[in-house]
Each structure stands twice: as structure tokens, then as C-alpha cells.
Design a protein around this nucleic acid. Structure first.
Lengths: 335, 335
DNA sequence: GTGAAAGCGCTAACAA
DNA sequence: TTGTTAGCGCTTTCAC
């Protein structure tokens, strides 16, 4: 015998396979005794249901797809881990979590079918994900998009307001007398880059700070790029008094570059990061950063997803959590 | 109409559904023209196959399970991300990667069925995972266990030899004159803790270094525990001249504690980490560490898994990759 | 309380 | 080259 099926159990128990099915799903009225007997046999035979068969008849896959724009490029480890942890925790173990990277998911989105996914969570970074999201919507799969504000599509969308956090962080810097604020931006095609940029531009314009073009450099959210771009900044004749990196990883890289140049953090150059990742607190100096509530976003996203899965007609929801500036030791007033 | 099926296509194309199936799988000889027509209709109708149905008949799920001992506790973000990236990359997009945490995967391993998983990768930390692995083997699911050496089970097993790396790291320290080497161990129930312990014990005994009980403390692989345990160590009257943390996260925590105490790294206290995670290189000072080749382990693991999946009768393979000491700036000779 | 039978969407053996 | 048919393992309706 290969794998135990309900038929095998039925034969041994001397009942029909439908009775076995009923017992296994402890459905309707059926004799307590036969039920007990069947369950016992199932256990002895090490029975586990064939999910494909069950899915086929129930039109329910017990699969939740978690699609990142990319799991390879531009996604920091702490963010990635945090997202998976939070989603897994909230989803529970009744469902499978299938992790995919949209950028390598070519084959014309071949498995995007409501029968294959009970729900889909898109952890989106790029506007280009819209074509994928659109497919998902067309297929009527319950879907929620996290992390990036989707403008052109009617879809459940949970994000954090990153402009506010950045604005506040920059405002704090300006209030401390800083004007020479350099920025290491993230990947150009990531929305987070554009949004965070808006945040500092808002603060700059409000406080009438001149934007120095040579102070704005492009990173890619990776540690190395933070290091390299900060090195570039330090070569400038007129050096910045602060470096604001668009994520904590790059902030760490930048700090290395500063210290390597024989300068001190924060005495010579202050640093501001973004994400509020755990490790940033343990650096010396601890890095001031802008915290985005990844867990809340994920929890809330899953909650909504399950709502839609249960009750198709709920209204589309857009929600934005706050981000906030966390002051730590990497910032000092301008000398 | 709900979701397009091959029957819908068949009706429109005026052929039988089996012809559609053939066209879709571009099987055997069938009229190029009808095939083309069918494919076109399929595209127009936005057809995507129902994987449950396909799985059911083919006895192939296109699911690869990636089971961690825990995705929540004791698993560092960089390790987790690295593993998922490496496995995903090698597996390719024909398969679904289902990420699970064994510790929360109670319900008597209910979905462990060869029909539900074409293959399973266990990223194992604890001996207790053996009961899970055993179930998988019993069910004849192709399986490979990564990361932890499995002793009591005949199973494909790809690990790294961590004893050697630790031994070399400690030897290096001893050669630099260090004797007061403190250790922050990892989670007690993780095999990695035991193995890395063996590494330093081997070096200690070989070089006849006395083991100071108060120098051996228990962390949990989390940043905070590195910080806290290092603080404890610094309260000792006779302070260590080196702290070796069983992973880079704890090393970072330990460094914070040392610097906070007004001591310098490495001038006053040297630090050695473990993992070779990317960020450890960007810390200041960069942390000397022991590199384990996670990518290689994962790549090789996937390769073997696919081998077994294709050809059931391949021999069981045990393979161990080397770990090696990476010298960086966090270590100085004993004063 | 239980069995018979149909059917979920697909593939494949067998006919034609 | 194509259609008919059976069947993968399961749930569920309808009888009894």
C-alpha cells in the first residue's frame, strides 16, 4: 500500500468511505462508537488527508501567498524576517504560507488562480507590482497589499505614513541647527524611496533649507551601498553634518565610512536611519531612526485578508499606520 | 462563469477537454492549428490551471516544504533570510516554497503526506526535530536535513563542521596570548550550542587552558541576551580579555555592553562572533567571526533533494562543509 | 446513522 | 489527430 486513504480506512472499519469522511470531519450525527473506531484506525494507519483532493472538492487550498517585490534585492533581512514572522503568527498553522518573489515569478503568473490561493498578501515595494496585483484582483482572489500605497487600483492597502516620520526626523535635525543634511536614498524604483524623499523635501522646504544636490546620493538599501555612498559624501569639500540613510542597514554602512575617515559619530557627523530594526538599538552609538510598525501592518493585513476570505462583500479598506522618530545616541546638535 | 477550466475552453474551441489538456501540456502529436487555437482561447480567457486537480491526478504537488525548528525564536534574521533566498533561488519558480515553523506546527503533523509535499527541507536546530523528521521519512517524502547533524536517523544531511571553525578561532585567540576567554553560548536546546561548545572545549583542553566556570554564560542567540550576558561578565572581578559569542547578533549585543562599560574593543576586550553575517563586516570595529557557508549548504541541499525526487533510489548522503575563521578588527593580542 | 452516487478539474489509456 | 472514459481522493446530497 502506498499512502493511506479514506478508502483503506473504510475497508478495515467495514463502513463506507463517506462515513469515514464524516468521522474525520466530525460532522453531523453519526454513531459515537463507529466514529471512535474509525478515528482509531486512522491513527493506527497514520492517515493524513490528501490536501489536493480536499482542495479540489472544497475549492479551498489552504494556501496564503506572500509575494514580495523581490526577496533578493533591496529587501533587508530584518524586514523580511519580521514580515514572515508576523504573518505566520497571525495566519496560524491551518494555512500554508507560500513565499514568492514577484521579480522572478515570470511565467505569466501561471498559478494565480483562486483555487490555488485562498488569499494573497503582496508586500509591495514597486509600482510595477501593480500589473501583478491587477491579475490577482481580476481573478477575484482575496488580496491585501502591504507596505506601499497603491494609487491606481481599488485594493485593500495597509501602509505606514513614512512621510510624517521622516519629516519629524528631519525637523528634529533642523531644530538642532543642522542644515548640511546629506541623504542616502534607497533603490530608485522602490516607492519607499520616493515617499521618504517627499518627507525630507517637505521639511527642507518648510524650513527653507537649501537643497544641496551633492548631498543627495543614491543607495540601494544594501549595507555596502551605505558605506560607499557615505564615503563619497565625505570626499566633498563641504561635508555634511548629518547623514540620513533611507534604512538602518545603509546607516550602519555609513557609520563605518565615517569612522573609517577618522571622524566621530555623532560628534562630527550625526546619523539618522530608517526602519527601527532591532539591531540599530545595539549599535554604538545606537542609531536614531524612524520606526515603522511592520508587525502592526502585517497583523492588520492578515486580519483584513481573513475578513474578505470569510465574507466576500466587505468594503475595501485603506489604512495607514504612523511612523515615528526614535531619538537615540547618533545625533548631536550642530556644533 | 467563475474560473475558467479546460472544459470552458473545450466548448469554445469545439474540441474535447482532453484535447485542450494535450494542447496545454503540448503533448504528443496534435494538429498544430488546433493547438494554436486552443492556446489562444486559453490566453483570452485568462486560463490558469487548477493545481489541486492537477496534483490529484499526477500525485505531484509542486510544493517544497521548508521547515525551521522555529522561525520565531533563536533564528537570526540574517540566517533566516539567507536560507530562504538560497533555497528559493535554487528551487526556481516551478515549485511553491512553503515556510513552516515546527514548534508551532502541532496538530500531529497533519499535512505531512507525500501528496502534499514533493519534498521537504528541514532547517534543523534541535534534536527534538527528529520526531518530525522521522514522520517525514516514514511517509516516504524526499527529505534533506540542513544545518544540524542528525545522528540517529538515516537521512540526507548537509551541515557545516562548526567545531573546526570554532576551534580555529579559539586557537587564534590563544596564540595571541588570551587565556581569559569568556563564552556567551546560544540556546541550550539548540545543537549548534553543543557543537560550538565542543569546539572551544577542544581548543581549551588541547592548549591546557583552565575553564573558568564564571566565564561560560548562556545566551539565547538574541541581541539582547548578548548584551545582558556580557554585562554580567563585566561585573566579574576578574574580567575576561575576550568574549566569544555563539552568533554575530549576540556579539553585537556584547560589544554594546563592553563599550557602555567604558571599555574599548578590541584594546581592552576582544570579540569573536559566529556566522559571518553580512552586517558583522560593517560594524566598527568589524567583528572577527566564524563563517559558515549557508548558501552552499542550501544549494547543495536542494540539489540532493531534487535528485531524490527524480530518482528515488539514490543513496543517502551526508555532507559537511567547512567553517572558517575570518580575522577582522575586533581581536588584539593579549596585553 | 449510514451508504450510494455524483462531481470537483485534470490527465492518460484506450479507441476510433 | 482527436474523443471517450475512467479515476486521482475527497465531500456532500439524497436516499434509505
Amino acid at each position: 500500500m502506498n499512502v493511506t486513504t479514506i478508502k483503506d480506512i473504510a475497508k478495515i472499519a467495514g463502513v463506507s468511505h463517506s462515513t469515514v469522511s464524516r468521522a474525520l470531519n466530525n460532522s453531523s450525527a453519526l454513531n459515537e462508537e463507529t466514529k471512535k473506531r474509525i478515528l482509531e484506525i486512522a491513527r493506527d494507519l497514520n492517515y493524513t488527508p490528501n490536501t489536493s483532493a480536499r482542495s479540489l472538492v472544497l475549492s479551498k487550498s489552504y494556501n496564503i501567498g506572500v509575494f514580495f517585490s523581490s526577496i533578493y534585492d533591496g529587501t533587508s533581512s530584518s524586514f523580511f524576517h519580521n514580515v514572515i514572522k508576523s504573518i505566520s503568527e497571525k495566519v496560524g498553522s491551518n494555512y500554508n504560507i507560500i513565499v514568492k518573489s514577484i521579480d522572478t515569478y515570470i511565467e505569466s503568473y501561471n498559478s494565480i488562480n483562486p483555487k490555488n490561493f485562498d488569499g494573497i498578501i503582496v508586500v509591495s515595494q514597486k509600482k510595477e507590482d501593480d500589473s501583478f496585483i491587477k491579475k490577482v484582483i481580476e481573478k477575484m482572489i482575496p488580496v491585501v497589499v502591504l507596505n506601499r500605497e497603491v494609487k491606481d487600483l481599488e485594493v485593500n492597502n495597509i501602509v505606514s505614513n513614512e512621510i510624517i516620520g521622516v519629516y519629524e526626523g528631519i525637523k528634529h535635525l533642523i531644530n538642532l541647527g543642522h542644515k548640511d543634511i546629506a541623504i542616502i536614498e534607497g533603490k530608485e524604483d522602490f516607492e519607499s524611496t520616493k515617499v521618504r524623499r517627499k518627507g525630507y523635501l517637505k521639511a527642507f522646504s518648510e524650513f527653507k533649507i537649501d537643497i544641496m544636490n551633492e548631498f543627495i546620493v543614491k543607495g540601494d538599501y544594501g549595507l555596502e551601498s551605505g558605506y560607499l555612498r557615505a564615503k563619497d559624501l565625505l570626499k566633498l569639500e563641504h561635508k555634511p553634518s548629518v547623514i540620513f540613510a533611507f534604512n538602518d542597514d545603509m546607516a550602519l554602512g555609513a557609520m563605518k565610512a565615517i569612522l573609517e575617515a577618522g571622524l566621530r559619530v555623532p560628534e562630527d557627523i550625526s546619523i539618522l536611519g530608517f526602519d527601527g530594526s532591532v539591531f540599530s538599538h545595539y549599535l554604538t552609538p545606537s542609531i536614531s531612526t524612524i520606526k515603522r510598525p511592520i508587525e502592526e501592518i502585517c497583523y492588520y493585513g492578515v486580519k483584513i485578508l481573513f475578513n474578505i476570505m470569510k465574507n466576500k462583500n466587505v468594503e475595501i479598506e485603506k489604512k495607514s499606520f504612523k511612523t515615528f522618530f526614535i531619538e537615540r545616541d547618533s545625533i548631536l546638535p550642530k556644533k
